[in-house]
Simulated scan of single mutants.
Amino acid sequence: MTKLESIKSKVSQAEDFARKIWLAGLGAYAKSYDEVQGKADELSAEASKVFEDLVAKGETVEAETKDKFKAKADDLKVSERVAEVREKLGMNSKGTSEKIDELSAKIDALADTVAKLSAK
């Protein structure tokens, strides 16, 4: 083998080795990319599940809150109606207990009168 052939052989071996280094680097990149892509897919699926769980929990809380507000609104409507009736009956003014005492006394007097009349 001549010196020129020896040099060409070594250059060819160096080119093969450089190509193998290049391919190993490319393979490492591809393998890393695949692993990262797999992890990203897992995280995406997990994030979707967590998001759906949060949405479901939010729907539950919203429904409970609406029920509580509806019950409170119904209570307020009843309270407003009671206040309206009390106002019409004059029970919101001062002296309501005096009026009730006065009416009770009149009823007692009427009951006594009826009792006396029926005794005759």
Rank of each mutant, 00 (worst) to 15 (best):
F17M: 14
E35V: 00
E42L: 01
L26I: 11
K39H: 06
Y33S: 11
G38Y: 03
Y29M: 08
Q37H: 02
A45R: 07
K20E: 10
D34I: 02
E15K: 10
G27P: 02
D16C: 08
D41W: 04
L43K: 08
K31S: 08
D16N: 12
K31G: 03
R19W: 12
L26G: 11
L23V: 12
E42K: 04
D41G: 07
V36S: 12
Y29L: 09
D41C: 03
A18V: 12
G27Y: 03
S44G: 12
G25L: 11
A24M: 10
G38C: 02
D34Q: 05
W22K: 15
L23M: 12
Q37F: 01
A45I: 01
Y29W: 13
R19C: 11
A24F: 08
E15L: 13
Y33F: 10
A18I: 11
A40R: 05
A18G: 10
A24Y: 10
W22N: 15
E35A: 03
W22A: 15
A45S: 05
D41E: 13
S44W: 03
L43G: 02
R19A: 14
E35L: 01
E15Y: 04
F17D: 14
F17H: 14
A24I: 07
G25H: 07
L43F: 07
Q37K: 04
D34Y: 03
A40K: 09
A40V: 11
I21P: 05
Q37R: 07
G38L: 02
Y33P: 02
A18T: 13
D41Q: 12
D34E: 10
A30S: 08
D16P: 01
L26K: 15
R19V: 14
G25P: 00
A28T: 08
K31Y: 00
A30L: 08
K31M: 02
L23Y: 09
L43R: 05
E42M: 02
D34G: 08
K20A: 06
A28D: 05
A45V: 00
K31N: 01
A18L: 14
L23T: 10
L26D: 14
I21L: 13
E42D: 09
L43I: 02
L26F: 13
R19M: 14
G38I: 00
A28G: 07
A18M: 10
G38H: 04
K20L: 04
Q37S: 05
A30N: 07
F17P: 00
F17G: 10
S44D: 05
E42H: 01
G25C: 08
D41V: 05
G27C: 02
K20N: 11
D34C: 02
A30I: 06
L23Q: 12
V36W: 10
A30R: 07
E15V: 13
A40L: 11
K31P: 00
L23F: 09
Y33T: 10
Y33Q: 13
K20M: 08
E15H: 09
K31E: 08
R19T: 15
A18E: 14
K31R: 12
Y33D: 09
V36T: 14
D41A: 07
D41Y: 04
G25F: 06
F17T: 15
W22R: 15
Y29G: 09
Y29E: 11
S44R: 11
A18P: 08
A40F: 04
Y33K: 14
S44E: 05
G27I: 06
A45D: 04
A28S: 07
K20P: 03
S44F: 03
